[in-house]
Design a protein around this nucleic acid. Sequence first.
DNA 1: AAACTGGCTGTTAGCGGTAACTTATCAATC
DNA 2: GATTGATAAGTTACCGCTAACAGCCAGTTT
Lengths: 344, 344
Amino acid sequence: MAKPVVPDPRRTLTLRDVSEASGVSEMTVSRVLRNRGDVSDGTRERVLEAARRLGYVPNKIAGALASQRVNLVGVIIPSLSNMVFPEVMTGISDVLEDTGLQPVVGVTNYLPEREESVIYEMLSWRPSGLILAGLEHSEASQAMLAQAGVPVVEIMDIDGTPVDSAVGISHRRAGRQMAEAIVAAGYRRIAFLGTQMPNDHRAKKRLAGFEEALAREGLQLADREFYSGGSALLKGREMTEAVLKRSPDVDFLYYSNDMIGAGGLLYCLDQGIDVPGRVGLAGFNGVELLDGLPRRLATMDACRLDIGRLAAEIIAGKRPDGIVGGEIIELTPTLQPGDTIRKV
Amino acid sequence: MAKPVVPDPRRTLTLRDVSEASGVSEMTVSRVLRNRGDVSDGTRERVLEAARRLGYVPNKIAGALASQRVNLVGVIIPSLSNMVFPEVMTGISDVLEDTGLQPVVGVTNYLPEREESVIYEMLSWRPSGLILAGLEHSEASQAMLAQAGVPVVEIMDIDGTPVDSAVGISHRRAGRQMAEAIVAAGYRRIAFLGTQMPNDHRAKKRLAGFEEALAREGLQLADREFYSGGSALLKGREMTEAVLKRSPDVDFLYYSNDMIGAGGLLYCLDQGIDVPGRVGLAGFNGVELLDGLPRRLATMDACRLDIGRLAAEIIAGKRPDGIVGGEIIELTPTLQPGDTIRKV
DNA sequence: AAACTGGCTGTTAGCGGTAACTTATCAATC
DNA sequence: GATTGATAAGTTACCGCTAACAGCCAGTTT
């Protein structure tokens, strides 16, 4: 029967403790705990029992140093609070789950210098791979990533040149597509409402694509309004009110994300404005949240789950055909017309 | 002038490379890079220049093993996607920022066995501390935490016995308080709408406190409805419809979180139901999202930012008076009556 | 019977840093 | 001029674990 163990509270346990408690060498304990190499059933049992009894937790720091292998994948994203990255994380976790790899999240708050230090910090732990949002990074960041010697996957966006691999959609094209759909539905006085953030490159690209497509139709933005910080839903309301007051003849509002779009929708409904007759509305992302709105907001899903999945597959070396790196995967977002664009 | 460096792409750089490139010992390089000990300005310059030129990134694995110090704080939470934890994370990051400590997030999806393995995984990296949501953990988890030899802070909840320290609110009391306010406002036929999850202990405690306070007034729940999964906003709508159809005489709906509460609110407004006259509504959390709703939902803020801050301060040893551990900090949530409870 | 398996276990030498100590140098002090 | 103390380096010995290899002992194989 297991003897009562009085663990010395000051010292943390090592392999040696387990090896002494079970009467075998440290190496054998190591083998048992990692399920590697041949160990007889009897020995395995004794070792496991001892480890359990002592409450031994292996020291991965030492293990990683010795084996030169770290089962961590760094995931670097701009923000946790905007509903888009949690889903990406889900995709990543799903795939990594059964590879022995573990995601570690770092947040940059859309600050390039913060991104730089997060990258540095992550690389200093020698992860098996890095997944990071966006293609725009400081020069120093790019250099670090290129030197890192591990797979790097840049996600969300493919309008640009990745350091290594990329998985995402073309935001430029997404903007274009939305503009085309809006114009095709007969809207002509179109306004843009979006975020101020200078480092939200993807929103900027969508806007650029959007304006480009409008220009091709001989149109230009009738108005624009920006915000930063605060409750997105509330900001959506406020901006919508501002635009409609300032430019009463505007007939479409294109929002840079679904959350402010939802705020705008609620405002219009409050005011009894005919949607999509008097004004049409569209957002971007396809967040689940929208399902519960009084009316379904037109949007474009950003393939977030798939992006996470594919990125993780590249890191885990699970992509078919042994493609090693330098892969660029473009996903195609689909327009969800909802109920806020006139049917043609 | 800096010689062009042709880094061997197969081998990752070590201190030795920098030491050779700058003509000093590894130890001196180590000192420069960590800003520790006395190094002459000239040497410091040369070392930094060499490190920069080579693109050297220190190996924290080796550093941590040698120094027995890891600047990581594990943060274990049930989910990223419910708006409550991002704010906790913000509080944690704020405080940790200037302590040299770095948060590392792990997600359990409300699964105890998953929590167990996340704890194990985290402890195997020998972090400087652990912050985890909730007081309910498997026996094995508790044992690991108790043995870990690092500060452990359990957050969000204080109705129970923490392993070490705890920072949170009393959900039982929060539920009671809300019930009292509702009854005081004159509502009598009260329904509860909430999550199904057996492991959302905090929601359960709120409900328990709620029912307890009702009982004290000689009341009991008129109806209840549960959901799991899916878009919370949509579920809020559906559940509200179901309850109001099934129990037309219900005059108050208490939701276990703001998101489903918002869905319920939108439903009622759609249906032209008089809120708060015909039915009153209340949620829980005080999420920012609510600011943009057509009407402000009654709720109770959960002090998420402060919880994060205080937890991080405990880990960082920043708490006043040198309290070392075993601290229990109870925060007091405030009722935000909004516009969905009748004024008395 | 010698040689050869294959299964199981132990030994040795690091992994890349850092703590703690030692050594050289040099100006200031007595 | 010898002593001291501060400063700026270098040396040595690990940190806890694993890769690689070596040993040993049945049970074949020839």
